[in-house]
Design a protein around this nucleic acid. Structure first.
Length: 640
RNA sequence: GCCACUUUAGCUCCUAACAGGUAGAGCAGUGCCAUGGUAAGGCAAAGGUUGCUGGUUCGAGUCCAGCAAGUGGCACCA
């Protein structure tokens, strides 16, 4: 007999070799039904794997996130088995569960196409019907290598496993895969799934190696869950900023204008201008000084900064004129270094915070471009803070808090905070251990002291220093960088920046790079997706649409209140087209205008307006002045 | 950049063009008529070198090749 201890501290004796499934069944038949796998002394166990010794056991049920992973991991195996049947020459890379499903990387002679997914799905269903038991087996390294000797990918994986790792395989009838487990026990347990897409993926994420075909899919415990997930996927497409941006006339991407070079249409530019003004005020209040520097700069400038060495492949080709070589700037830090050097600085002057609306160009890989999310010409509010060493923590923290405020004002949500650190093994970072250690230590201390949770990302730092990146999630589920605060001891060295200290000697300032809310392009994509195109009133390109009931009788009043709104700096438009009322209302709704106002006899006689707020059915009649007051309040408060 | 797929009117067309036979619709826009209360009034005309360049064919939106852009991913992302 062995002793099994449960999470609540109770324990019970069972026969040696009992399984999670049997234990669950012993507790209750409903638990048995819900159980998917379990933890035995912290190790993930399949339902049917025998437990050989005293252990603490935790049963994983369908409700747990881990259960979803187990199911999807098993679905990946199921798919691989189906692919192997249809493509006997298939070789397999890795096939893990991911956030919303699973994928498997597959190498076949004949490419798999999107239309083949249905065929694979059907084969999967057949295997589900065959009720293949998924059997776990431990192999020695030699046995494993012998078994997978015709699959170079699996062979490489086995070779790279640590010496002491127990190598396990899982078999479902004729198909055996190298796998750590856990699994769902039997293919019959994988009932509700769908294959979603196919894409290329480099073997082991290395672009110098083979490219495999990655099939993405998703598996759920119930039909309803699967359908719900597919609905979410469909809804994401509705939120896609590329679709909304076109419908709402926000921006244009044209082949003729150039790949990745976005054109801002009037509606988009109106929003952008509001954001620019908002940011300007925010920075003013936080003590930033605004400057303006050119899009073009000498190559020398970037050689001094080190960007030429570290960032050249992301820059557009150089231009030559009058014996000087120019580049389109990919960032503004070097220019701001020169601005700092334009005067002699005292320790009393610091911190100096330079901010600028910067347009910059980066040669992004063509495959990386995506709507407004990733472009080749971008404009952002960039800032560089020149500080003394004793001011670092406060200034980093202030910058971080300013970012939080902007994100909050814009109604956005942070996915997580990243601390990007260097990887000493990689050559892309500048070489000064002492400064790096200091910079990284300061950043960690600061985050810890403030109780800010973060994920450390080794090797993700800028070449000149560590950075705190604030990540958000797009409608399509991608995580992208929204804001950044970066600590830099290098550029002050390279530009020989100094200030005169209290002691009368020259000292080296430290630079903090700050990206507030990404670029206007990326921010617009995020806002469109966040609000599904229905901007809050303070940001909406058009805030009010005034519609007269009758063009003959109410046109004067409509014009009068429209003018009044404009006098109060409200973005109001009059719809005087010769169309039916219903048509104009529908137009105002599809354009997602926050306030649609209809005026007729009642309003004319009482000096009122009848408005309907976007997203609501209710109509409200109020005195015109009251309406103005209300909407102004809403704008000032940046109500979402 | 790499792999796969896609590209027809300003927009949407896996709800066009059956298998190669000379391009259709809805919306928007235009004109005329109609015109009073919260999501599409009627009629009409117009709108296209089917992404570009070649090829096969009596004949190409359709088949083939190259290029470009876009989409899904991968790689990249100061």
């Amino acid at each position: 007999m062995i002793k099994i201890t449960f999470p609540d501290g109770t324990s019970k004796e069972y026969e040696r070799g009992i399984s999670i499934e049997q234990i669950a069944g012993d507790i209750s038949s409903s638990l048995k039904k819900q159980s998917v796998a379990g933890y035995v002394n912290g190790d993930l166990y399949d339902l049917n794997r025998p437990i050989e010794e005293d252990a603490s056991v935790e049963i994983i049920t369908r409700k747990d996130q881990k259960a979803f992973e187990v199911l999807n991991h098993s679905a990946a195996h199921l798919m691989a088995q189906a692919v192997k049947r249809l493509y006997p020459d298939a070789k397999f890379g890795v096939g893990p569960a991911i956030r919303e499903g699973f994928y498997y990387d597959i190498d076949t002679k004949e490419p798999i196409r999107e239309e083949d997914l249905l065929k694979i799905e059907n084969m999967m269903r057949r295997i589900v019907k065959e009720q293949q038991s998924m059997e776990r087996k431990e192999l020695s390294r030699e046995e494993a290598l012998a078994f997978f000797n015709d699959d170079p990918y699996k062979t490489e994986l086995i070779t790279d496993l640590p010496e002491d790792e127990i190598i396990t395989v899982y078999s479902q009838n004729e198909f055996t895969d190298l796998c750590r487990g856990g699994h769902i026990g039997n293919t019959k347990n994988i009932k509700f799934f769908k294959l979603l897409s196919i894409a290329g993926a480099y073997w082991r994420g290395d672009s110098s190696r083979n490219q495999l075909q990655r099939i993405y899919g998703t598996a759920w415990f119930t039909q309803e869950d699967l359908e719900k997930h597919l609905e979410i996927l469909a809804e994401r497409k509705e939120r896609d900023h590329r679709k909304l941006g076109k419908e709402l006339r926000i921006f244009e991407l044209s082949n003729d204008a150039g790949q990745g070079l976005a054109l801002w249409l009037p509606n988009g530019y109106t929003v952008r201008k509001i954001l620019e003004d908002y940011v300007y005020k925010l920075e003013k209040k936080a003590g930033y000084l605004h400057v303006s520097t050119p899009v073009l700069g000498t190559k020398r400038l970037y050689e001094i900064s080190g960007h030429w060495d570290h960032y050249r492949e992301n820059m557009f080709p150089v231009m030559e004129r009058d014996g000087e070589t120019f580049v389109l700037r990919p960032m503004s830090c070097p220019h701001h270094m020169i601005v700092y050097k334009s005067d002699l600085r005292s320790y009393r002057d610091l911190p100096i915070r330079y901010a600028e609306i910067v347009t910059q160009h980066r040669y992004e890989a063509s495959g990386a471009l995506s709507g407004l999310e990733r472009v080749r010409a971008m404009t952002l509010t960039d800032a560089h803070l020149f500080v003394r060493k004793d001011q670092i923590k406060k200034e980093v923290l202030d910058a971080y808090n300013l970012i939080l405020q902007a994100i909050d004002d814009l109604g956005l949500e942070i996915e997580y905070v990243e601390l990007a650190l260097r990887d000493k093994a990689k050559g892309k970072f500048h070489d000064n251990d002492e400064l790096w250690d200091l910079a990284e230590k300061l950043m960690k201390e600061l985050l810890d002291e403030e109780g800010i949770e973060y994920t450390a990302m080794t090797g993700e730092a800028a070449f000149y220093g560590p950075k705190i990146d604030i990540q958000v999630r797009t409608a399509m589920g991608h995580v992208i960088t929204m804001s950044t605060v970066q600590l830099d001891f290098l550029l002050p060295e390279r530009f020989d920046l100094t200030y005169i200290g209290q002691d009368g000697e020259k000292h080296r300032p430290v630079v903090i790079h700050r990206g507030l809310i990404s670029t206007w392009e990326r921010l617009m994509s995020i806002l469109l997706e966040q609000y599904k195109g229905a901007f809050p009133t303070w940001l909406a390109p058009t805030q009010i649409r005034v519609i007269p009931v009758s063009l003959d009788n109410h046109d004067k009043y409509a014009k009068k209140i429209n003018d009044l709104f404009i006098d109060y700096d409200l973005r109001s438009e009059l719809d005087m087209r010769e169309e039916k009322l219903g048509y104009k209302i529908r137009a105002a709704q599809t354009e997602k205008i926050p306030y649609q106002i209809v005026v007729g006899d009642d309003e004319v006689n009482n000096e009122t307006v009848t408005y309907r707020k976007y997203g609501e059915k209710e109509q409200v009649t109020v005195p015109t002045k009251e309406f103005i007051h209300m909407i102004q309040e809403e704008i000032i408060n940046k109500s979402k």
